[in-house]
Nucleic acid binder design. Structure first.
Lengths: 216, 216
DNA sequence: ATGATCTTGTTCTCGCGTTCACAAACTTCT
DNA sequence: AGAAGTTTGTGAACGCGAGAACAAGATCAT
């Protein structure tokens, strides 16, 4: 389920190299997962492979795209046009995968109307209109943590069904709304934890050796 | 392990509100997790709570920060100063949590020396020197997918032990190197999948009702 | 055609993480 | 002091996903 987009990307890369057929081993290698896991994942979608042959790259790619819902375009609204919101608004990876940013919203009245890429920054009061007219299903929150819950409530109220949250805050939403969280500093902290354990681990290992040597 | 930073943030928020003591229920609520899970997580670090009372906010916060390795500062280098790299270089959330960006590296010779925030963009040939002098342990890759593996190799070769990868590519690294991946468009695709299933689910539900009604 | 080879789809087992539930320990009130 | 009320730490059951292993199905060579 969460790995489908990775498979899709691997298939796209293979298609670009004009590979016609790929085995689960090939695909798994390109996606960085176990081949049994990949086969099991794909089997949930249907039986799109051929035993003894593998998977037809183009066909499977279409099927996965359809399953994810990428055969249609999705409208996205970004709230909070700071450093990150700015970068997201210009991020080419979105458009190329069927996501279209249809509105940029910021709180600062001084920035109203400022152009970022093809779009002008608008007020949060325009949210309802924008969401209704472009049938926006996905909202991106790139505000500071303090504003996140309020913005989230407005998005939900306007009818947005899925939220991608970059703010370092825990959002509470109704059951029918999906939230995914991307927290940059948490990722760094996790890496710091591993780094520390590597450094610390060596010290502990030495101490351990001494203990063990003493015991033996 | 991966939830420690969330607890840390919740504790910081409580400390800012001058809360002295918090129960596992309080903390779990603020962090958005089950209270039993939180208690078990914390029990792996040691017994920092007091039965009948709860956890001392300041004390626990320090212990978690120490466990993660946030009592020391970490030097970070960012490679690829496009939209995203730019935003990351200016992101205040890093500094405030003990991460210091010490170098910005980009491939484009025309941009060498360009200033972003307090730093000038430098060449990847300077990587070894920078990593050694500032003892950089963490590298951030914000390049296009095509360049990611090459940059990754250079980082590993220079002695970086942990990598945060924003490029939509699968990186292969030696065992002793940790990699974490943040993929913006994958997050959106997962949301699109859920959205589609919501819309589709209704249609299927109707079809299902018909079938069931027919069967009964 | 038939055996050899390959690859998928699926079953089975294992291990891990989550959650429940409860005893131990601390506080507070009488 | 002792009972009642809280809250932590942890043992046990549960569920779920990951990986190994194998049978079914397809191609290929002879």
């Amino acid at each position: 389920m969460a790995r489908l987009p990775i498979y899709l990307r691997a298939l796209t890369a293979l298609a670009d190299r004009e590979v016609v057929t790929a085995s689960s081993e090939d695909l798994a290698g390109a996606a960085g997962v176990n081949s049994a896991k990949l086969r099991k994942d794909l089997s949930y979608l249907g039986t799109y492979g051929t035993r003894g042959v593998g998977y037809d790259v183009t066909y499977l790619r279409y099927q996965i795209a359809r399953e994810i819902g990428l055969t249609q375009d999705w409208s996205v609204v970004i709230v909070g046009i700071g450093n990150l919101g700015h970068a997201l608004a210009n991020y080419s990876g979105f458009v190329s995968r069927g996501f279209q940013v249809v509105a940029l919203i910021d709180n600062d009245p001084a920035r109203l109307g400022e152009r970022v890429g093809d779009l002008a920054i608008s007020s949060i009061d325009d949210l309802d209109v924008v969401v209704r007219e472009a049938s926006v299903a996905i909202g991106v929150i790139a505000t500071p943590a303090g504003a996140a819950q309020a913005v989230c409530d407005r998005l939900v109220e306007a009818g947005v069904g899925s939220i991608l949250n970059f703010a370092p805050a825990v959002l509470t939403v109704p059951d029918h709304v999906d939230v995914r969280k991307v927290d940059l500093s948490i990722e760094l902290q996790i890496l710091a934890y591993h780094e520390q354990r590597k450094a610390h681990g060596l010290a502990l290992l030495h101490a351990d050796d001494v203990v063990r040597a003493g015991a033996v």
